[in-house]
């Protein structure tokens, strides 16, 4: 699948400093939906897409990982990514969420909601140039 997830998790550690595209610095736990939206707007070439979780299951190919199935953007394109269960995703209007909030708390000290089917996550794509 042409999707990538960060392999170095340190930016999810509570207290990690995140630089928005506006130059503003925020802690990872303080980020809000609008921070991502505005950052994409001023970045140029990047677009925030709404990615709805449509299925969550254990990865068949990579034991220990979770396969997350998304429908992405207006075209409802199907994308699947394999991630560790503690990997946080930012859900619109809700904030950080993961398949295993307990593991996320243990590893990153980052408070998460349970990620569920129907959640709409923040993702980015390259903006289509006409």
């Amino acid at each position: 699948a042409p999707a990538s997830a960060p392999s170095n998790p340190s930016h999810f550690m509570k207290g990690a400093i995140i630089q928005l595209a506006t130059g503003e610095l925020k802690r990872v736990e303080d980020l809000q939906t609008q921070d991502f939206v505005r950052s994409a707007e001023v970045s140029g070439g990047l677009k925030i897409d709404s990615s709805m979780v449509v299925d969550i299951r254990a990865s068949q190919q990579k034991p220990g990982l979770v396969s997350l199935h998304f429908t992405v953007g207006e075209q409802q394109s199907k994308v699947t990514i394999d991630v560790p269960p503690e990997h946080p995703f930012f859900v619109f209007g809700q904030g950080w969420s993961s398949c295993s909030p307990e593991r996320t708390a243990q590893l990153y000290d980052l408070a998460c909601h349970p990620l569920q089917v129907g959640d709409v996550c923040v993702s980015i794509t390259l903006q289509q140039q006409p």
Partner: peptide
Amino acid sequence: NVEPRSVPVFPWHSLVPFLAPTQSD
């Protein structure tokens, strides 16, 4: 008191997945 001064700063886009559609026109 140790004041952390060399705190790494991560770009915002490293936090969200890059989900490229598998189907294109």
